[in-house]
Design a protein around this nucleic acid. Structure first.
Length: 896
RNA sequence: GGGUGGUUAGUUCAGAGGGAGAACGUCUGCUUGACGUGCAGAAGGUCACAGGUUCGAGUCCUGUACCACCCACCA
C-alpha cells in the first residue's frame, strides 16, 4: 500500500519500553526545580568563600509591564554565564532588581487613571504616588515571576528597586556631593520639552527621524523703506516669537539692509536685521529668522545680540495668550492659521516640500519642543573624562570591541545632562530653598531648617530626577554604597555588564562616570553588548509591527529550556537573534534527545561501575578511547569559549558532541557491546555511557538548566543538585591516534552507507564489502574497526584483496584515503555508477590540474615555505592515484 | 554631514593568507529494541563588484555598489 507523504507509521508497541518514562511536559518539572534551587541556596553569594568572584548586576527591568523577548535574551545570556562560572568554581553573584522608570511608569499609570475617568491632578501628588506604589508591587511580582520561569540564578536576598531606601540614600548622597562640588547647577536654557509628558528631557531621550515637511518662505517688510527680507523656515508658527532676522555679514545681497529694521508680520512687532557668522548663505534665502525662546541656536544668537526672548508656546505646546488671534491653538493648528494669514497678506512667497529631522519623545513619540525653562544640569565634562580614560586604558573592555569607539565618541563630545523632570514619580530633587535668606542647599536627610539662617521657611524642589540618574548608580547602590558594606568590598567592581547597545549612553556611560566618581573604580571589568531580538524574517520585534511573541507563551508551549536554546544557540557575540518556531523546536528536540539518550542508558544499563574502576579491569577499545578523547577536547573547548564570552560557540560544540559524537556514533557502537560483549566490556561500556551522559548534562546545564537537572536526579551516581555541582572533570587526555583511526572507520562506514543508499538496500540486508588496498596500516585500522563497520553499516563480511586482484565488474565503489572499497551489485545497477564515477573523475582531474600548475610554477617552488610545497606534492600524488584508480575502473566497466 | 558594522549554500551564520564549513531548510530511503521531536544518505556556493599586494586572496590593502544601525542645532 502506498504511504501518504508525511504519514508516519504507527509506533511499535513494546511493553518493555515502559520501564522508563518518556519525557514529561516541561511544566511538570520546571517550576518545581526553581523552588528547589532556591531552597537549596544554589544561587546565594558566598562572600566568605575563598574563590574567584564573578558578579553581574542585572539591568533592572522597568516596572512598566512584563518582560519581552529582549529582556529574556538578556537574562538567558547572564544566566548561562553565572551558572557556568559557578560550576567552574567561582563565587557567582547575580543581583536582581527593577527600575522605577519615571516617565514610562507615570505614563502607564496616568493612562490607567484616564480609563477610570480620573486623573493625576485629581488624586494629587501624594495620592498619585500611593497609586503608583501599588502598581509597582504587582509589576515587580510579575517581572520576578518571569525571571523565575526563565530559570535565572539570581540571588533574591540581594534584590533591589531603584527607589527603595538603600537606592534612595545612594541617590541623595551622590546628588549632594555633585551639588556641593559645583557639578550640579541650575540654569535657564533651551531644553527638549515633551508637551505630552509635560517634562524636560535630556538630549539622548529625544529620537530624531527624517520626516516629510515643508519649507515656508516668508517676507518681512522693511520699515521706512521699500522691499522686504524673505526668510525660510520649517516652523512658520514660531515667527510669532521672532526677535530678529539674521544674515551673514559677508552676504553681499543683504549689505544694503544692514542696520535696517523690519516689521514682523501678523504680530506687527519691530525687529532688527542683524548679522551673524552662523548664518549659512547658501541655505534658503540666506536670511534666518531668530526665535530665541524656541530654538537652541536662535537662543545662542539671541544671547550674543541681547535679543528679547518671546515665549509663544505654553507647556502643552499651545499658543500663549500674548498672541490673541492664535491664543489657545495647538502648535500645528496655529501653523495652518499663520500660513493662511500670511498668504492672505501676500507675505508667503513660496512653499516647497522639504525633508527634515524631527525629534520625538522616546517614551510617547510626541514631537519635542525646544523650550526655554529653568532646569537642573550635571556638568558632565569632569565626569566624562575619567570614564573615557578608563576604557582607553583597558580598565573596562567592550565586547564586541566595536562599541568602544561609539562609547568614546559620545563621551568625548558630551554636553551637560539635564536631570530635572517635571514629574511626580521619581526621586525628588534633594534641594531646599530658604524663603527667608534665599540660600539653596542640598541634603541627604530632609531639611527642617535652613543651614545658613536656620529659618524653617524652606521649600523643597518639586521636580524629580531623571530615572537614569538612579540607574547610573545601580552597581554601587545595589551593593550598599554609600555604606562601606562587605558586599561592596567583595563584589565591586563587578565582573561583567550584559546589556543592549541601545543604552550605552543612557546607562553604561553614566554608570562608568558615577562608578569612577563615587566607587573609586570602574563599575565593571567588561561590557558584553548583545544584539536585539528579531522575528524569523529579520524584522525587529515591536508592538507596532505586531510581531511580538511573549516569552511566557513560548515557555508554555516548548518549555523554558527550548526558549533558552533558541537564544543562546544564535546569540553570536553582538549578533542579533532571530527567533522562530523552528528555533524553539530545535531546542525542544535537543531536550527530547537528551531525555531519550538517558532513557536508553538507564533502561539498558541501570547501574555501572565507576569509570576508573572499569578501566582497571578492561582496556578501552578504539571507540572508548575515541569518545573519551573527544570529551576531553570538548571540555577544553567549551571552557575556552565560555571564558571568552563566546556562548553560542560553547553551546554548538556541546550540542555537536552530544548529538553526533556521543549519540550517533558512540552510543550506536555501544549497543552490540552491551548486548553481546564480555562482562568486562559490558561494564566498561556502561561506565563510559554513565560518565558521559553525566558530563553532557553538566556541560549543557548552563544553557538548559531544567531538563539537565531533572535527568541528573535520575542518574545513580549523581549527588546533590546539578545547579550546585562543580564542573565535571575527566582524567583523560586527547588521543590523536584514536581520533585518526576512528575517523577512518567513520569514513569507511559512511562510504558503505552511501553505496547502500544507491543500492536501495534495506537496513536488514547484510552486504559484503571488498577492500582493495595497498596500504598495510590502514588495513590494520579497518580490521580493528570491523565490529563497528559490521554493526553500523550492515556489513556481514569484509574481504581484503590485494591490488591487481579483480573485484569484479558488477560492483559499486568508493575511494577512501589509501583504499578502495567495492560492494557487489546485481546486473543493471551499473548505469548510475558510471555517471557517478565520471563526475568524480572530472572533479579529480580539475583539482589535479590546479595542483599540477602550482607545482610547475618556479615562483611557488622557490618562494612558498617548504612545508607547503611538500604538502602540495603529497596531495598531487594522492590525487594522481585516485584519478588512476577511477580511470581504470571506468575503463574496466566500459570495456566489458 | 560624520561614524560603525555587514555582503560566504535557500535561510541564519562560522571561517581572518595555502585543499569552501555548521545549523536549520530541501530531496531520497528507513516500523534500525532510546528518540519519526528520530536514523541514514544526498544535492546545493565565480565567498557583492573592480583594482592592487603576494608564489598563492572569502581571508590583507584601496575603491565602488547595496543593506543595516548610530550620531549631528543648518533654519
Amino acid at each position: 500500500m502506498e504511504k501518504e507523504p508525511g504519514e508516519v507509521p504507527e509506533r511499535r508497541k513494546r511493553s518493555d519500553s515502559d520501564r522508563f518514562p518518556r519525557r514529561p511536559n516541561p511544566a511538570e518539572y520546571e517550576s518545581e526545580w526553581y523552588a528547589r534551587w532556591i531552597e537549596g541556596g544554589c544561587f546565594s553569594a558566598r562572600p566568605e568563600a575563598d574563590a574567584p568572584r564573578f558578579t553581574i548586576v542585572i539591568p533592572p527591568p522597568n516596572i512598566t509591564g512584563s518582560l519581552h523577548m529582549g529582556h529574556a535574551l538578556n537574562l538567558c545570556i547572564q544566566d548561562a554565564l553565572i551558572r557556568y562560572r559557578k560550576s567552574a568554581g567561582a563565587d557567582s553573584l547575580w543581583v536582581p532588581g527593577t527600575d522605577h522608570a519615571g516617565i514610562a511608569t507615570q505614563n502607564v499609570v496616568e493612562k490607567q487613571l484616564a480609563d477610570e475617568g480620573t486623573s493625576r491632578a485629581e488624586l494629587g501628588r501624594e495620592g498619585f504616588e500611593k497609586r503608583v506604589r501599588e502598581w509597582k508591587g504587582a509589576a515587580i511580582e510579575r517581572i520576578n515571576d518571569q525571571i523565575r520561569k526563565l530559570g535565572c540564578a539570581v540571588d533574591w536576598t540581594m534584590e533591589r528597586f531603584t527607589m527603595d531606601e538603600q537606592c534612595s540614600l545612594a541617590v541623595r548622597t551622590a546628588f549632594k556631593r555633585l551639588f556641593d562640588e559645583g557639578l550640579i547647577y541650575r540654569d535657564t536654557r533651551i531644553i527638549n520639552w515633551c508637551p505630552r509628558c509635560r517634562t524636560a528631557l535630556s538630549d539622548i531621550e529625544v529620537e530624531h527621524a527624517e520626516e516629510e515637511g515643508a519649507l515656508y518662505y516668508i517676507a518681512y517688510p522693511l520699515i521706512g523703506d521699500e522691499g522686504a527680507v524673505t526668510v525660510a523656515t520649517t516652523r512658520p508658527e514660531t515667527m510669532l516669537g521672532d526677535s530678529a532676522v539674521a544674515v551673514n555679514p559677508g552676504d553681499d545681497r543683504y549689505r544694503s539692509f544692514h542696520g535696517k529694521r523690519l516689521l514682523l508680520p501678523l504680530v506687527r512687532r519691530e525687529i532688527p536685521l542683524i548679522t551673524d557668522d552662523y548664518v549659512d548663505m547658501s541655505f534658503g534665502t540666506g536670511a534666518l529668522k531668530i526665535t530665541p525662546a524656541h530654538d537652541p541656536y536662535d537662543f545662542e544668537i539671541g544671547r550674543r545680540h541681547g535679543l528679547a526672548q518671546h515665549r509663544m508656546l505654553t507647556e502643552e505646546a499651545v499658543i500663549t495668550g500674548d498672541y490673541p488671534p492664535y491664543a489657545g491653538l495647538d502648535r500645528y493648528e496655529a501653523r495652518k492659521r499663520v500660513v493662511e494669514d500670511l498668504k492672505a497678506a501676500e507675505l508667503l512667497k513660496k512653499q516647497e516640500p522639504y525633508r527634515h529631522s524631527v525629534g520625538r519623545c522616546y517614551r510617547c513619540d510626541t514631537a519635542v519642543e525646544p523650550y526655554l525653562s529653568l532646569q537642573w544640569f550635571v556638568k558632565t565634562k569632569p565626569l566624562a573624562a575619567p570614564a573615557a580614560e578608563a576604557v582607553r586604558e583597558g580598565k573596562t573592555r567592550f565586547l564586541p570591541e566595536k562599541w568602544t569607539k561609539v562609547y568614546l565618541n559620545w563621551l568625548d563630545d558630551i554636553r551637560d545632562w539635564c536631570i530635572s523632570r517635571q514629574l511626580w514619580w521619581g526621586h525628588r530633587i534633594p534641594v531646599w530653598t530658604c524663603g527667608s535668606c534665599g540660600a539653596v542647599s542640598s541634603s541627604v536627610e530632609d531639611l527642617a531648617a535652613c543651614p545658613s539662617c536656620s529659618s524653617a521657611a524652606l521649600s523643597m524642589e518639586e521636580d524629580v530626577l531623571d530615572t537614569w540618574f538612579s540607574s547610573g548608580l545601580w552597581p554601587l547602590s545595589t551593593l550598599g554604597w554609600p555604606a562601606g558594606t562587605r558586599a561592596l568590598e567583595v563584589y565591586y567592581p563587578t565582573t561583567v555588564l550584559v546589556t543592549g547597545f541601545d543604552i550605552i549612553f543612557f546607562w553604561v556611560a553614566r554608570m562608568m562616570m558615577f562608578g569612577l566618581k563615587f566607587g573609586g573604580d570602574v563599575p565593571f571589568r567588561e561590557v558584553y553588548i548583545h544584539g536585539i531580538v528579531r522575528d524569523a524574517k529579520g524584522k525587529k520585534m515591536s508592538k507596532s509591527f505586531g510581531n511580538v511573541i511573549d516569552p511566557i507563551d513560548t515557555i508554555g508551549v516548548y518549555g523554558a529550556d527550548a526558549l533558552r536554546y533558541a537564544f543562546l544557540s544564535s546569540a553570536g557575540m553582538g549578533q542579533d537573534v532571530y527567533i522562530s518556531d523552528e528555533r524553539f523546536k530545535a531546542g525542544r528536540n535537543l531536550c527530547n534527545k537528551l531525555w531519550n539518550s538517558a532513557r536508553f542508558i538507564l533502561m539498558d544499563s541501570p547501574g555501572a561501575p565507576p569509570l576508573e574502576k572499569a578501566l582497571e579491569d578492561e582496556p578501552p577499545d578504539l571507540a572508548d578511547r575515541w569518545i573519551l578523547s573527544r570529551a576531553a577536547v570538548l571540555l577544553d573547548e567549551t571552557k575556552r569559549a565560555m571564558d571568552g564570552y563566546r556562548i553560542d560557540e560553547a553551546l554548538h560544540k556541546a550540542y555537536a558532541f552530544f548529538w553526533h559524537d556521543f549519540c550517533d556514533w558512540y552510543l550506536e557502537s555501544a549497543k552490540p557491546k552491551l548486548r553481546a560483549g564480555q562482562p568486562g566490556r559490558r561494564a566498561l561500556t556502561a561506565a563510559i555511557l554513565h560518565r558521559l551522559i553525566a558530563l553532557n548534562l553538566s556541560i549543557l546545564h548552563p544553557f538548559l538548566p531544567f531538563i539537565t537537572e531533572e535527568l541528573w536526579k535520575l542518574l545513580p551516581a549523581a549527588e546533590g543538585m546539578l545547579a550546585a555541582a562543580p564542573c565535571p572533570s575527566l582524567s583523560w587526555e586527547p588521543d590523536r591516534d584514536a581520533e585518526d583511526a576512528m575517523s577512518l572507520i567513520q569514513d569507511f562506514i559512511r562510504s558503505v552507507r552511501d553505496i547502500r543508499a544507491n543500492l536501495n538496500a534495506p537496513p536488514s540486508k547484510k552486504i559484503e564489502v571488498i577492500v582493495l588496498t595497498g596500504s598495510g596500516e590502514k588495513i590494520q585500522t579497518v580490521k580493528a574497526g570491523e565490529p563497528y563497520i559490521a554493526a553500523l553499516a550492515g556489513v556481514e563480511r569484509i574481504s581484503f584483496l590485494r591490488r591487481g586482484e579483480i573485484a569484479g565488474k558488477q560492483t559499486l565503489s568508493s575511494l577512501l584515503p589509501g583504499m578502495e572499497i567495492h560492494v557487489r551489485v546485481p546486473e543493471g545497477a551499473m548505469k548510475e555508477e558510471m555517471r557517478r564515477l565520471e563526475k568524480k573523475r572530472s572533479a579529480l582531474a580539475a583539482e589535479m590540474e590546479r595542483v599540477e600548475r602550482k607545482l610547475g610554477d618556479e615562483n611557488f617552488l622557490s618562494r612558498a615555505p617548504g612545508e607547503i610545497v611538500k604538502k602540495e606534492n603529497q596531495r598531487f600524488a594522492a590525487l594522481k592515484e585516485d584519478l588512476h584508480k577511477i580511470s581504470e575502473r571506468l575503463n574496466e566497466l566500459s570495456g566489458r
